[in-house]
Design a protein around this nucleic acid. Structure first.
Lengths: 134, 134
DNA sequence: CAGGATCCAATCGGATACTG
DNA sequence: CAGTATCCGATTGGATCCTG
């Protein structure tokens, strides 16, 4: 079953959502590890890869197709970063031709649950935003 | 809302949130306006600015302090982009010294409600992710 | 205080070619 | 099919100086 962004934003997250209490005075520290993590998961291609994998296990070629426009270099680089971060699992089968599957870890799945609504929102609001509509 | 990977693999049906139905075959189109919007709102500094503003109206100097490490150039650039996108409102008072306030629009606030949980998640998981802990 | 303008280094990222 | 390696142009972004 598919849930529209409308339904999601309407039903979830009673406003306002609060920042982590650890952020003293609302200052997001520069050297903080979360800055690095945030950069990874909000990177141009990282978002799209996590998004694609939120629908289940996918092969290299699937990801290339879904994240339309991505180069092989960036796909490899992004996947390695996400794998190092423990968000994505890589499973290679020693067959010819090679077959490699990528899927989300538990933590990656947890993350995608937060990312999907964000992308859905961007998708729904994009036209108005670009056109300058209120 | 937390969903474990176990639940996910066990019951294939209930996803926490689905991709927009308009994404045929899960392909995120390259020329799509949402790509642009997504880049804006997930940009390195855009996230931190929106986050800071989720706590209410802020001055230029407040934003510089909260988004620790940001340069004046990037602050100006990011704010302009967010303003053009109708997510942030700029209010200048013709006094000396100048006073300029920034705040979220309705749409910007709606967005921040999705962004805050994401950042909070990154903040809470960052240490484990960087250390390579499960 | 709140920026604008400019220079330049670093990084990003695409194109291409090659491989097991 | 699923990558790796390399070149190199494009973009990012910080530092610095300037202004009303």
């Amino acid at each position: 079953m598919k849930v529209s962004a409308q339904e999601f934003t309407a039903s979830a997250a009673p406003l306002p959502a609060a920042l982590p209490a650890a952020l003293a005075d609302g200052v997001f520290p520069a050297g903080c590890p979360s800055r690095t993590v945030l950069d990874h998961i909000t990177s141009k291609w990282g978002v799209l890869i996590l998004l694609a994998l939120s629908e289940g296990e996918q092969r290299w070629s699937d990801l290339r197709r879904r994240a339309e426009g991505i180069s092989e270099k960036m796909l490899a680089q992004t996947l390695k970063t996400l794998e190092r971060d423990g968000l994505v699992t890589r499973t290679a089968q020693p067959v010819i031709p090679p077959r490699v599957d990528y899927s989300l870890t538990g933590r990656g799945y947890e993350l995608s649950a937060l990312l999907v609504p964000l992308v859905a929102w961007a998708f729904e609001n994009a036209d108005d935003i670009i056109k300058g509509q209120p």
